[in-house]
Nucleic acid binder design. Sequence first.
DNA 1: TGCACAATGAGAACCGATTATCATCAAGCA
DNA 2: TGCTTGATGATAATCGGTTCTCATTGTGCA
Lengths: 123, 123
Amino acid sequence: MRRHSRYRQLIQDTLRDADGPLSATDVQALLDDTGIGLATVYRLLNEGVEDGELVGVELPGGPRRFEPAGLPHHHHFECRACRKVFAVRGCPGRMERLVPDGFELEQHEVILFGRCADCVTAD
Amino acid sequence: MRRHSRYRQLIQDTLRDADGPLSATDVQALLDDTGIGLATVYRLLNEGVEDGELVGVELPGGPRRFEPAGLPHHHHFECRACRKVFAVRGCPGRMERLVPDGFELEQHEVILFGRCADCVTAD
DNA sequence: TGCACAATGAGAACCGATTATCATCAAGCA
DNA sequence: TGCTTGATGATAATCGGTTCTCATTGTGCA
């Protein structure tokens, strides 16, 4: 049984309020003023996944990220300038057309790359 | 100036004949009988990218992969069973619809996950 | 045929991400 | 108010991937 954990809920809230999936170091940086250690962040993120409250998100060339479980179907946009990752609603669909004969499709991921609004404006 | 390289062309040919992008260790394994060293594989792959003959392909949670430059627009299918990655022609399109206001889209990647024909048959 | 130097292979080193270790801290109960 | 025990933080260890180092090889030209 998991007893009192100062941070458990705080991490959940942090992920829920974020614009997209966060890495362990992102979470630590956002909770910097609490002094939380990186080991604790990893521990709680992994526990969150085990408990089904969180899901891991893998994006090309980056560390593992985490977001709340149960979000509606969505994909991700990675800003090439600030490296932030945003969840984007919707899906282009029609993935089946791409699947070669004899292959079985289980899942798909769409990743958009470009520049986020903040970085576009910053020019 | 690059002079005689036994392997340069061999690696190009290997990538060109493959079903999809290959990692450095994939290439080494395919050229196993030549005794090529991993350092050489990495060196030639990186040179290939510098020279514009190859492009690097990043997929979630895997090592960097390489494929010939100039291929027509395509995406990738990763087999969850054998971990092989296949290039798949075509594109679902309509990516712009997903881009949030104020964001600028530069590129997109679509990755399909499932089981390849060989692994489906192997059951 | 000999030489200079690029190419190579083996393995050490490095790197970022992640996990393990362990002493310390503190919540909740006696 | 003490005690037990899970939670925590600092840091070492680990892990896959990749790059670096350097002695050796062998190509291509003199």
